[in-house]
């Protein structure tokens, strides 16, 4: 079947099977930033934005994306680059497998214009597992980035 979506601002028509998951579709269509880490929506590395909200794409049927706006990290390249600078300053980037997903959740938070404390930022990002950093450097980098972004 074919569905029509908007990915990173561009209209895309995906040729899919009815049971296909969005993470697989996006990978198949060369959005390399979309990664798979757990198959149980627990790890956050497959996070994308659907109509601006973070969604684990490994549990999202592509068919549901008909008419929706999808954002992958390729669609927020400048924002990701700036976030990466803060990650670099804090030594928060290690293996990086979780980074694009985090960038999208942080981007969604920024768009929401909600205020946050360190504690609720940690809570907000609880779905993004990271086995490398110990989290604190990431949280600092994100706070700096959001502070700059205001």
């Amino acid at each position: 079947m074919k569905i029509e979506t908007v990915v990173n601002g561009h209209k895309r028509i995906f040729d899919i099977t009815p049971d296909e998951l969005l993470a697989d579709t996006l990978k198949r269509y060369d959005y390399t930033s979309v990664r798979k880490g757990c198959d149980t929506t627990s790890c956050g590395v497959c996070t994308i934005l659907v109509d601006g909200s973070p969604v684990p794409s490994c549990a999202y049927l592509t068919a549901r994306a008909e008419g929706k706006e999808i954002t992958t990290v390729e669609g927020i390249a400048e924002e990701a680059e700036r976030l990466a600078e803060h990650f670099g300053d804090e030594g928060a980037d290690q293996c990086g497998f979780c980074n694009p997903g985090i960038a999208l959740s942080v981007h969604a938070l920024k768009l929401s214009r909600k205020s946050f404390t360190e504690e609720n930022l940690r809570h907000y990002l609880v779905g993004h597992l990271c086995r490398c950093s110990g989290y604190q450097s990431q949280i600092k980098a994100i706070q700096r980035y959001l502070g700059d972004a205001k």
């Binding site: 959005y31 390399t32 930033s33 979309v34 992958t72 990290v73 390729e74 390249a77 990701a80 680059e81 976030l83 990466a84 600078e85 990650f87 670099g88 300053d89 030594g91 980037d93 990086g96 980074n99 694009p100 960038a103």
Partner: peptide, 11 residues
């Protein structure tokens, strides 16, 4: 900064 941090973050 890590030499590869940006490219990795940008996916």
């Amino acid at each position: 900064r890590s030499i590869d941090g940006k490219g990795i973050m940008m996916g």
